[in-house]
Design a protein around this nucleic acid. Structure first.
Ligand SMILES: [Mn+2]
Ligand SMILES: [Mn+2]
Ligand SMILES: [Zn+2]
Ligand SMILES: [Zn+2]
Lengths: 144, 144
DNA sequence: TCCATTATTGAATATGATTATCAATATCAT
DNA sequence: ATGATATTGATAATCATATTCAATAATGGA
């Protein structure tokens, strides 16, 4: 019914954009991969499937995926932007291990509500937020 | 007694680093300025006071100020890094207006506690976190 | 199916933020 | 004051991402 490929196809049609093989390949690379990928990660996968696909097309397509609501940008630090699945994925925050880079997704409705309350108390209309907690994961703690 | 200049001086001595005029100028520019400054902001102020001070020295000194605990890096997005006062400033999070860029500092001990709880529940030792809530501020909302 | 229009692509180049290099200079313990 | 060496600033290098542009491909209509 409303699978993601179809949503992307409709979006392209409505905007007068074109449905290209590259866009499909990049979309599928993104959908098949789990986790929090950088543009470079995606480039390596997509270019592996279809040599010739360039960085520019990957960057451009990721922008589109964000616009349709299939992907979401995540900033763990000020290095590279990462992308995660957004469609039918509830908002969540992140625990990031500073040793091994592992990322755990967390959600706490109390925190979410408190954030909205704080924003409104200060006259803000909250639109989005990102909470990243950096620490040391269980495995890395064991390794001394 | 333990004013910031002194803390910085001790830090330099202990580390075998040298107390230079440039470092003093940049430290004072940082201390006099309020808010969340980028390296460029600091460069403009410091270079205004003492033409000749270069970008490299500003970047290097900001790294030192972070190491001593006088400054703290803040990432509002993946553009430029910003620096805020840390010494004797309690940890806090930020409301950021996506229209005018205004930043409001917020603190809620309930949120802080809930974060620690969540981290520990997942086996993480929390070390630091950043929460940025992006939205539209009261003034920008009025301007339609 | 063929065409014309025009969006898209990939290579190359540009940009913006930050870091590294290095020769000249300044700091500091002696 | 002197010598050892940390620091500086100009410049070049990096890194992630954006832009340019000529060649190509997708689309809707004849
Ligand atoms: Mn996630
Ligand atoms: Mn702040
Ligand atoms: Zn770990
Ligand atoms: Zn505003």
């Amino acid at each position: 019914m409303d699978n993601i490929e179809q949503i992307f196809g409709n979006f392209l049609r409505e905007k007068g954009l074109r449905h290209t093989e590259q866009r499909d390949i990049i979309l599928n690379a993104f959908l098949e991969a789990e986790g929090h990928l950088s543009a470079e990660d995606l480039y390596i996968i997509a270019n592996g499937k279809s040599p010739g696909i360039g960085y520019a097309t990957v960057y451009r397509t990721l922008k589109l995926l964000c616009k349709v609501g299939i992907a979401r940008e995540v900033y763990f630090d000020n290095g590279k932007v990462r992308y995660e699945h957004k469609y039918k994925h509830r908002h969540h925050d992140h625990l990031v291990c500073i040793r091994c880079g592992k990322v755990i997704e967390i959600f706490d409705s109390k925190i979410e509500e408190a954030q909205d309350r704080l924003a409104k108390k200060n006259g803000f209309i909250p639109i989005k937020h990102q909470l990243n907690i950096f620490g040391v994961c269980k495995e890395c703690r064991k390794k001394k």
